[in-house]
């Protein structure tokens, strides 16, 4: 791991990504101080272009776009991280069970995983949010429900590959119990892949969240980038800035997370290092 971090630090693109993420995190912390009125407050005239007073302009109701971007960062990061975490845990449990037990358990779990990978994820997420009624929690649940299959297949694949390796056999031959094999040998050896893929999952989760919010499936009481863009659509011809800036925020955040994820992948997975 130590050597991996050193390799990561040598990857300039990944470091750049990490810096941008730090800035976004700092923004979420500073938002209440920078914009004490909050993102929903009507602070000025409607549809003001960017100016010294309103850096990113105002929307059709006279709300500060910059305040929305700052508050939306918190929503996106919160939902993205929670959903990715949920998906990693769920996927690791299912994939781990399938890869460790093999046989009938494996076949059944992998059929279910393939099923969830086949069906249109975004539509299922939409349905789930509609049924659970839009809220931060329901969005997290919906995104988790459609994001876990990738992790499950990864963990299952790693478990199967490692299970055939002789050091696992050797440990079983010493009399190691199932939990010992899983937690001492199998999981630590695929942790780096899980970390790398899990970090990329945060980016996809954020894209899903903004997409849902754009369709009006976000929490109506919480400001988010998708909601801002959705609201700004109506005034697209007159005021380009309302839609543009939240979109750039999404782009930069997702891009940075991808860069960090790629960096982690290259640094932690020796197989890819040669490329």
């Amino acid at each position: 791991m130590g050597a991996g971090l050193k390799r990561f630090a040598r990857n300039r693109m990944a470091l750049l990504g990490a810096c941008v993420i730090l800035i976004v995190v700092a923004l979420t912390i500073m938002a209440p101080f920078l914009f004490p009125a909050g993102a929903f407050a009507l602070v000025g005239p409607a549809l003001q272009p960017p100016s010294a007073r309103f850096w990113l302009g105002t929307d059709a109701l006279g709300r500060d776009v910059a305040a929305g971007v700052a508050e939306g960062a918190r929503t996106s990061l919160l939902i993205g991280m929670s959903a990715a975490m949920g998906a990693v845990v769920l996927g690791a449990v299912i994939g781990g069970l399938a890869g460790y037990c093999r046989g009938a358990v494996d076949i059944v779990l992998m059929r279910i995983t393939e099923f969830f990978q086949t069906i249109p994820a975004f539509l299922l997420a939409m349905l789930l949010v509609v049924i659970l009624s839009p809220s931060v929690l329901s969005v997290i649940i919906a995104i988790t429900a459609v994001s876990w299959p990738g992790i499950a297949r990864l963990v299952r694949g790693e478990f199967v590959a490692l299970g055939g390796r002789e050091f696992i056999l050797a440990s079983a031959g010493l009399g190691a119990s199932g939990p010992r094999l899983v937690f001492v040998h199998l999981l630590p050896n695929c942790l780096s892949s899980i970390i790398a893929v899990g970090s990329l999952l945060v980016a996809t989760a954020i894209l899903l969240e903004t997409g849902l919010a754009f369709l009006g499936l976000g929490d109506p009481n919480v400001m988010s980038w998708g909601l801002q863009i959705s609201a700004g659509r109506v005034s697209l011809r007159a005021a380009w800035w309302v839609c543009t800036f939240p979109g750039i925020a999404i782009l930069l955040t997702v891009l940075s997370i991808n860069l960090v994820g790629d960096g982690l992948n290259e640094a932690l997975n020796p197989r890819l290092r040669e490329r």
Binding site: R165, E166, F167, A170, G175, S177, N189
Partner: peptide
């Protein structure tokens, strides 16, 4: 697996591939 454990002690195995038979993280 559990009942077998005391017997495991009596038979031990040495493997072919010296690169695959040791856990790289131990």
């Amino acid at each position: 697996t559990k009942a077998l454990r005391p017997y495991r002690q009596k038979i031990q195995m040495i493997f072919q591939d010296p690169y695959a038979s040791l856990d790289p993280r131990q």
